[in-house]
Design a protein around this nucleic acid. Structure first.
Lengths: 324, 324
DNA sequence: CTGAAAGCGCTAACAG
DNA sequence: CTGTTAGCGCTTTCAG
């Protein structure tokens, strides 16, 4: 059409389709290049009904946990030609709603770590497939990859008690609705073991700031001086606790052990190195993606779905919980 | 049309446009919801010629530096309704090319940390606007946010020499083409000061592994036992060096100082805490985004552009370079 | 092997 | 305030 030559033969050339002579194809390609022609994704998307864009929701990319999730998910998705839109929701439900409703017209599916519940989700995104990455306890009719803290936490408590720890303090980051699922499992399992545990709740505002976490831990330890082990809501909290103990001259792990959750790289880097509960994020990302494909091909499985897979943690023992 | 009622009045309802009675609008909206109707992004994109999707290229989200860039960039872009496609290129030029040519049909602009040069870029993406985030030294006719290491490195060297350090070792991560720009600046500035510095090159393969970095540093120190300060290519390398020194019983900072580059959070968490060169990633992300908008509105500025803004580092002194 | 015609779902411009 | 018409750029028939 444009360049002296052909027409919608261009399609055949651009898309590597059969039924075109090498000559014309080469010619078309060359002209296309000269013209700096780029096919429009909209025209194509409209004509071919398939498409491959997924929205990933995480709470904060700056958190290595979510960065790793994003990295692995993008990799898995990319392998089969899917493209990933990433958004952060920064623990803010309002913002999450805006993000989701914008996703509703931009992607073919949504996955990730969502705050809102299924009912609100139905409102915002209709029957767009959504797969959550969430604590197992969370209900709902949509598919999800459930995180079961029980096996890991159980192993962790065994490890701590075998090491003679009896007064365990968990520093939780509660949700709006109360203790986090991590803390719930901790409470339940330690009660079952007859342990004298305490859960303190770190206010949200302190979250990213190590200094604030340190101060908070210092204060908690004044109230609970008998503490001989601290479990952090996650590795970053645990590292804050670790720093506080070290700087207060409390011997770790001799006088007090510290355990994190998530298995972030930072745990290897601090001194003493941090024991933690970790899991295979690559596998989790793969499961998320596969659940998404499943949801896409069968949007309304009979009787809802609930968890389609469950991930658990493995205890990695490093220096911070070593036994004397 | 569909639901007993209206037609393309739907448009007016869905898009909050004027010229529609509250009644009809409410009705349309309700029916749309019942029908789980979601407008197609393709139809819309085709009809309205504007659109707002940018591709962000980073080398590795797992690297906190890039995670922060992504986080900030997504935030800035989101503020004005842009949506961000994220891709990793893992230091692999082939992969980068695939990513870029796929981006060419998916986004309206590309920004980020690219390996390939402008000529190859022209080939892959035509006149799609691209803004790099790159070392100032890098040439090219496309716009970029240039990173100038000189002011920061200069401050760092002053700080180290004032602390009496004379034998500085830099652990570089070279590019295919030789020393990194960071190392080049280091070499130039330390030569100008008459310092006895050495640059050792960490093989790529070791990159993510702290243990490997530690071993490499141990070996480098055997060859250069007089070393009294180590500058890492980035914070992660510096932390590896720090760990090696500590575990080898070398007093930090008394016997040997350690300095990182990038200003990652991890620097605050290690013991002793890491001095580093940091910069304002939020501002850098904002500049990237704005340069992108500029490139979009004027794709071919007279005479190319080169750097459209320059970012520099600030020295943050923590324990690892403290003076006795 | 190449060309022509129709339509994907939406919005804009213009009537009614 | 609401309906009609045309066309965005591409792919898919179906003819030549």
């Amino acid at each position: 059409m444009k360049a002296g030559v052909s027409r919608q033969t261009v399609v055949r050339a651009m898309n590597d389709m059969p039924g075109i002579s090498a000559d014309t194809k080469a010619h078309v390609l060359r002209v296309a290049r000269e013209l700096r022609y780029r096919p429009s994704r909209f025209g194509r998307g409209l004509a071919k009904q398939d498409t491959l864009t997924v929205g990933l929701v995480v709470s904060d990319l700056t958190n290595a946990y979510f960065a790793e999730l994003a990295s692995e998910f993008i990799a898995v998705a990319g392998e089969v030609g899917w493209t990933v839109l990433v958004q952060e929701i920064e623990r803010d439900k309002q913002h999450e709603k805006r993000v989701l409703s914008s996703f509703a017209t931009q992607v073919d599916a949504i996955v990730g770590y969502l705050l809102i519940d299924d009912a609100e989700l139905d409102d915002l995104v209709g029957d767009l497939p959504v797969v959550r990455f969430a604590d197992l306890a969370r209900g709902g009719h949509r598919p999800m990859i459930g995180i079961d803290y029980e096996p890991g936490m159980s192993a962790a408590l065994d490890h701590l008690t075998h090491g003679g720890r009896r007064h365990i303090l968990m520093v939780d980051v509660p949700t709006e609705a109360g203790p986090s699922p991590r803390a719930e499992v901790f409470r339940r399992l330690s009660a079952a073991r007859g342990l004298a545990t305490t859960i303190v709740e770190l206010p949200d505002e302190h979250l990213p700031r190590t200094g604030a976490v340190m101060a908070f831990v210092a204060q908690a330890l004044e109230t609970h001086p008998e503490t001989d082990a601290i479990v952090g809501f996650n590795d970053m909290i645990a590292v804050g606790a670790l720093k506080q103990l070290v700087s207060a001259g409390v011997a770790v792990p001799e006088r007090c052990a510290v355990l994190g959750i998530d298995g972030l790289l930072v745990g290897e880097l601090v001194t003493p190195s941090l024991s933690t509960l970790e899991f295979d994020m690559r596998m989790a990302a793969r499961m998320l993606f596969e659940a998404m494909l499943a949801a896409l091909s069968d949007p309304h499985p009979a009787g809802g779905t609930g968890p389609v897979a469950i991930v658990t943690h493995t205890l990695t023992v490093r220096e911070s919980t070593a036994t004397a």
